[in-house]
């Protein structure tokens, strides 16, 4: 087993394990958020293995560094300690839904089988900030601008929502 594959398995196990821990943690919301941080950081490790260096750095800075800190912040702000949320009752039609989902997934995998590409040979600079930046500001500049508009809308929305009361 190559070193790359070994590290892939390590990070994959970490990511999947902490994701499971996040979903199954019924008592402690902060601990669930912290499990998700582990998932995000392991995913960043996998991104590095897949030669997406810039994406890995952004993943840690934005997801682990800002988004999840925000989650933890809100949980602490609301002071949700030891919340008791009864798990959903498993009704038959939910089980049926899960079965349907499994069938759909199996169909998707069957359709995909044999069409999966092999890893291409990529240049050394692939995924570095220069290359991604060039792609971002030439081929995808319209999408980039649209995202900036969306972020502006999100900022305004968040400010309006977080205000204590809107004056009538």
């Amino acid at each position: 087993m190559s070193a790359e594959l070994f590290f892939f398995y390590v990070f994959a196990a970490l990511a999947a394990g902490s994701a499971l821990a996040m979903v199954s943690n019924l008592r402690n919301t902060v601990a669930a958020a912290l499990s998700l941080v582990v998932t995000m950081v392991s995913l960043a490790g996998i991104y590095v293995l897949l030669r997406a260096h810039l994406v890995a750095a952004v993943q840690i800075m934005v997801y682990a560094g800002a988004v999840l800190v925000l989650f933890v912040f809100v949980v602490m702000l609301l002071n949700l300690r030891e919340d008791v949320f009864p798990p959903a009752r498993l009704r038959p039609f939910k089980l049926a839904g899960a079965a349907l989902g499994a069938v759909g997934l199996a169909g998707f995998l069957a359709a995909l089988a044999g069409h999966v590409p092999d890893m291409a040979a990529v240049p050394e600079s692939f995924g570095g900030y220069r290359e991604v930046g060039r792609a971002l500001f030439t081929d995808y500049v319209l999408a980039f601008e649209l995202v900036s508009l969306l972020l502006l809308a999100a900022i305004v929305g968040a400010v309006v929502l977080a205000k204590r009361r809107l004056e009538p």
């Binding site: 997406a52 810039l54 995202v147």
Partner: peptide
Amino acid sequence: QVVVLMVIAVAAGSVAVGLG
């Protein structure tokens, strides 16, 4: 990779609004 960067930006926005 560019799409991933977009998704991260959008996710950050959605979290800001969602947590609001």
